[in-house]
């Protein structure tokens, strides 16, 4: 289906949802001011839904607006939100973690042919094998054909890093972290970094130095990666929003790989599943736990 047709569909659906009073707001995408960039947009009146679009530039994961600090979900009426198949995983994760109730949202599922970043298809899209939303309340764009992903091993980049020697690896990351200015855009864009007070902002005691120096930056990135281990659903928002181009997905993917290898668990796939680091099982292989 062409972009225009899909955009027309989302406008129409969003308009109907608001008009009928079925939802209190619609979170979606609108035309951006730069080439290849779209805006996130929250409509509360049917008259505003003309602005909605959907195309290959719609990279943002809008699930972040469903987290508590946005206070967008008011009692009684659901909020409609545009979600790509990978974004839906974050909704699953939020439901798993009791941050969101399924009935509070109306999922406008978007079948997706992949999104673009500044240099072509986004990395996550090249390894994606899920082009149709897992579940939804309305489907836009029809069912698209699932094809073999261009990159068959989602952990290929991680394995490259793993093949480095310890000192090469250290050097690689320290050089990357050195660019970090601690703007926390990565955290703010992440649907799973929803903590009311992030550990990096805690001062009593101060666990991680807030200064953008090597120790502070190392602390920040390692702790964030650990907090997302088994929780990161791989939407790649942190890496996308990092203007310093720090390959944050690599860190998170490494943790996902470890979790998969240890527990056979992939985040964001099953509402009923318990993330492995939040529960304890007798068959867990760490001796010390038993």
């Amino acid at each position: 289906m062409s972009n225009d047709k899909i955009s027309a569909e989302v406008k129409k659906l969003a308009g109907e949802l608001l008009e009928s009073g079925k939802v209190s707001a619609v979170v979606g995408y609108a035309e951006g001011t730069l080439k290849g960039r779209v805006q996130t947009f929250i409509a509360r009146k049917a008259s505003e839904t003309e602005k909605f679009i959907f195309n290959q530039n719609c990279a943002n994961n809008l699930a972040v607006y469903l987290t508590k600090s946005y206070n967008i979900i008011s009692a009684g009426k659901p909020v409609a939100v545009f979600l790509k198949p990978c974004d839906i995983k974050s909704v699953t994760a939020l439901i798993q973690e009791h941050q969101l109730k399924r009935e509070d949202i109306f999922i406008i599922g978007l079948s997706c042919q992949g999104v673009l970043n500044d240099s072509g298809p986004a990395g996550k899209c090249r390894a994606c094998s899920m082009h149709n939303p897992q579940y939804y309340d309305a489907l836009i764009g029809g069912v698209v054909e699932e094809k073999e992903p261009e990159v068959t091993d989602p952990f290929a980049r991680v394995k490259e890093i793993e093949s480095m020697t310890t000192s090469e690896c250290w050097e690689f990351w320290m050089k990357e972290f050195d660019k970090c200015v601690r703007c926390y855009a990565c955290r703010q864009a992440c649907p799973l970094c929803y903590c009311e007070q992030c550990i990096v902002d805690k001062t009593r005691p101060r666990w991680i130095e807030s200064s953008a120096h090597p120790i502070g930056n190392l602390g920040w990135h390692l702790i964030r990666a650990f907090h997302l281990a088994g929780r990161c659903i791989g939407c790649g928002e942190c890496e996308r929003v990092c203007h310093q181009n720090i390959p944050l997905s690599l860190l998170n993917m490494k943790m996902s790989k470890e979790i998969f290898d240890l527990y056979g668990y992939t985040a964001g796939m099953d509402e009923g599943a318990k993330p492995p680091l939040t529960e304890f099982k007798m068959e867990d292989n760490e001796e010390f736990i038993r």
């Binding site: 996130t40 929250i42 607006y65 601690r182 703007c183 926390y184 855009a185 955290r187 807030s210 203007h243």
Partner: peptide, 25 residues
Amino acid sequence: ASRCLGCGSCAFLCPTCHCFDIVDE
């Protein structure tokens, strides 16, 4: 502001933003 994420990207990249914190280490 309804869609603003409240990050520091705009201020930290801006050549004229000049706010700062003072911390002990």
